[in-house]
Write a protein that binds this DNA or RNA. Structure first.
Lengths: 392, 392
DNA sequence: CAACAAATAAGAAACGTTACCTAACTTGGT
DNA sequence: ACCAAGTTAGGTAACGTTTCTTATTTGTTG
């Protein structure tokens, strides 16, 4: 999602277009002039303006032009040539080729973000925020969307270096499944930051920014318990160990401390999508008779919405018959017709921290590069309409 | 969002990583071997495997290796050398440099998508679908997110050619504001397809894929009118002419045909975001006394959700006191606690058509390149819980 | 006035590919 | 034996930058 951060400095450089590609048949090798000849079809074809053209117009050598346009620190061109070069660049509408630059310098000025599902508001918000964060620092964001496919995820993660970015921010659906790759990738030359999942599951030596779900979950448990809930359901990920702030065992333990037995806690499994959650919960609710839970914790807000829908379809009222808690606190949560209680993650802080960490790595401004940094942000429970007193 | 479409064909080419970047201090210019020396910090640094290395290991020239690995049609290498080259590539874990390839060939194997706001489920779904569509055809998708900023939008659109993609799919918030740029960009060398907005507003000679909202809107008008609604509100875009399937005038005209006077139609304006819509509608509802509309048409689903929230906050019941209709039919619409009635756009079809059109342009398989193609998809009204009988 | 440092500019070699053209081996038909 | 055609492989020049090194000019000083 690059907002072209033209490296031409403050030179006004009108935003006129510098069209590229001259077709296979380039005429006149050395004379870029030709003043845009019209093709047979009436389309203007204009060859790409190269640095060389600018240099020629300004009457300097290409490297001189390069140095000037890039405002390189050491090399001091005279004010006069500098002006000539800027003028020429402006006149021709010169736009540097990122590709050539990247090939030569090995720097891409862009950062990748690996996510599971762009369709999930959590991830799209994350991407949006991260983009803003890295852009402030002069990088473009390239989103790698796994589209909920695990094979795609593994594929993409293993091919990170194909990406040709300066660094990666990765959200993995299951860190433990990638433990080895993560550790070895961290030793590799491509800087990256692991995001999000696993309060505890990161003994892996990797730069990371995670949310600590213990606090938020504890608050949610306290709140629901105080409202009289004694039978719980937990809507978890499809596979054991998958990204999952409020892991089943964590919840079970917290509830156990309050005297809620394991037998009063139902663990449901679905994928992270809204429809899958709805399906799972519907069939669960249809089959659980009297022992129906009064509170349901979902793995994320999307699933929570699906669960809420399922409850409603089953003729239950939220929160009277079933209280529902999500995770993430996506922006939409507070606008739903029944607002969703959720365990809030600090998007903004997470993305800023990730950007800082990663860019420090990239630019080498990190004290000891061998030791990984871990940033942990607290979460907290936000109570909204979807949670109410238990009516057992 | 590139899923690296390795051009190495079916050669199994283990997915092991080919790390790049050797730091500023490259040793041994000609001997890539060096068998990954460990740096002082214990990090493996491995220089990028180049085609040259593969060629050397296989005992052939680089161009030979290139020809073989790219399975170029004409040049026939012997089965034996071919095998040697593949083996060498596998052994070294060779991954071609997209950058170098792009620089040389002028092809990027990627397509850009310009959208207003990644955070809006409509656009993230669109991106998701388009990515799938272009990926099938061997292209990566690069998302350009305007983050709801008009200046960013104009900036990005004007700098399209900086992007270094093979083609663009652009959704513009207001085609009319870009009319000139659109027309001239279409004549430019960068193929692009305009998306979505304006049933009627595209006399501009540009490849485009649009939804025709007339049908869906008519159905929605019919449905609500039949349910007894006689006072309407229309939640429109902030600026006149902004992307807006169910333009105020269109709605007004349809209602006029049914005998609903203009004075019974309130036009509200907000930006496309959920919170802005909620705010606008809240203050409207608080100020409209007895003449409160019984049906509200929103410019998109996000606004509709905001409006629904506003109604609820004002103590109104949806749909008893206020029926609400959105536009887009985002996946979530049918899962909300009060499911949202909406005018459905055919995401899948739109994205496929756009991909087809664009790629045909890119690959030059278009009969007459001077004449623009317009694809129009119908929309239709999907009735859900948010619409009910008018209780005046 | 010679000499030396700074200031300024240019030359040439990368970066990793692909494209175009030429050269060397095979054949097989006469 | 010999030459066309066919087959196979290599040489070299791009692509548009940046970077490293070298050359020129200018100004200052003993």
């Amino acid at each position: 999602m690059p907002l072209s951060s033209s490296s031409l400095g403050e030179g006004p450089l009108d935003l006129r277009k510098g069209f590229s590609r001259v077709g296979k048949d380039q005429v006149a090798k050395e004379h870029p002039a030709q003043e845009d000849g019209s093709s047979t079809l009436g389309m203007k074809i204009q060859r790409k303006i190269r640095l060389k053209d600018v240099a020629e117009l300004a009457g300097v050598a290409v490297n001189t032009a390069s140095t000037i346009l890039n405002r390189r620190p050491n090399s001091w061109a005279s004010k006069e040539t500098e002006a000539r070069v800027f003028k020429a660049a402006n006149e021709l509408g010169y736009r540097p080729s990122k590709t050539a630059r990247a090939l030569q310098s090995g720097r891409y000025h862009s950062i990748g973000l690996l996510i599971q599902d762009l369709t999930n508001p959590f991830f799209s918000t994350l991407a949006d925020e991260l983009e803003a964060a890295v852009e402030e620092r002069g990088y473009d964001l390239i989103v790698e969307n796994c589209r909920s496919s695990l094979v795609r995820e593994r594929h993409l993660f293993n091919d990170l270096t194909d990406l040709e970015v300066d660094g990666m921010v990765v959200w993995l659906s299951d860190n433990s499944a990638f433990e080895d790759e993560l550790a070895s990738a961290f030793k590799g030359p491509l800087p990256f930051v692991a995001l999000g999942c696993g309060s505890s599951s990161l003994p892996i030596p990797v730069d990371s920014v995670v949310s600590n779900f213990t606090e938020g979950l504890q608050q949610a448990v306290d709140a629901t318990f105080d409202l009289g809930h004694r039978r719980y359901a937990f809507l978890s990920a499809l596979a054991e160990g998958q990204a999952d702030g409020s892991r089943p065992d964590l919840l079970t333990r917290m509830l156990a401390e309050k005297g809620v037995p394991r037998s009063s806690i139902q663990i449901l499994r679905s994928s992270h999508s809204i429809d899958s959650a709805c399906e799972t919960v519907t069939s669960f609710l249809n089959s659980c008779g009297d022992e129906r839970p009064t509170a349901l914790f979902a793995i994320n807000d999307l699933s929570a919405i699906g669960a809420m829908r399922a409850a409603i379809e089953c003729g239950l009222h939220v929160p009277k018959d079933l209280s529902i808690v999500g995770v993430d606190d996506v922006p939409m949560a507070s606008y739903l017709p029944v607002t969703l209680s959720s365990i809030r993650q600090r998007y903004r802080k997470i993305t800023r921290a990730a950007a800082d960490l990663l860019i420090a790595r990239i630019e080498g401004t990190v004290e000891d590069p061998t030791v990984p940094t871990q940033v942990i942000f607290p979460t907290h429970f936000v109570a909204r309409e979807s949670v109410g007193p238990a009516v057992s």
